[in-house]
Design a protein around this nucleic acid. Structure first.
Length: 194
DNA sequence: CCCGGAAGCA
DNA sequence: TGCTTCCGGG
């Protein structure tokens, strides 16, 4: 039977994604970035929900750890995910199992003690989806601390891209506002907490 | 709730 | 490969 649920729920938005007001590289959201599967990825979908204000009562970023988010309405998130994937029997139990598979892939980790709360590992997410032609040569001087810094995100503030080659910490000092968290995530997170 | 093994599916 | 489904266990 033909499934038309793709047209329902959340629409697929084009370019320029924003997370809590800061730019996020568009290639990180492209399904083509993940070889082998052109289906929508769960982490992609979660990011999509988080990006939209109309779902703030369902899922939202949490103050505190950067990348930390809370699923305020697990049933609704599962319903929306099931709609997108044409799996009407989806529920939070199954969805959370899929999220748990991200632990070993280091895309997500659980914030223990906090209910329905997970944290994105942005450095892993970016390095895993950064196209090869945008990854700097390994022979290039190790200017930054983390492996994610090998990437050159397209939508990151110009100040980061241009000055990132000199010194890391002065750049962070010059950055203000919402750009800071991403810069910190990229520059100061060599390896995420296990 | 949260975890992760196991099997199955496209 | 990236889930989906099911489930025993903590």
């Amino acid at each position: 039977m033909y499934c038309r649920c793709f047209s329902e729920g959340i629409q697929t938005t084009p370019v320029n994604y924003w997370i809590s007001g800061l730019a996020f590289p568009d290639w990180a959201f492209k399904a083509e970035s993940s070889p082998g599967s052109r289906q929508i990825q769960l982490w992609h979908f979660i990011l999509e929900l988080l990006q939209k204000e109309e779902f703030r009562h369902v899922i939202a970023w949490q103050q505190g750890e950067y990348g930390e988010f809370v699923i305020k309405d697990p049933d609704e998130v599962a319903r929306l995910w099931g709609r997108r994937k044409c799996k009407p029997q989806m529920n939070y139990d199954k969805l959370s199992r899929a999220l748990r598979y991200y632990y070993n892939k280091r895309i997500l980790y659980k914030t223990k003690g906090k209910r329905f709360t997970y944290t994105f590992n942005f450095s892993k997410l970016i390095i895993a989806n950064c196209p090869p032609w945008k990854v700097w040569a390994p022979s290039a001087p190790r200017l930054l601390l983390g492996s994610a810094a090998m990437c050159q995100p397209t939508s990151v503030p110009v100040a980061v891209q241009s000055e990132v080659g000199t010194e890391a910490t002065p750049v962070l000092r010059t950055l203000t506002g919402p750009a800071l968290p991403l810069a910190r995530s990229l520059l100061l997170s060599p390896e995420p907490p296990r």
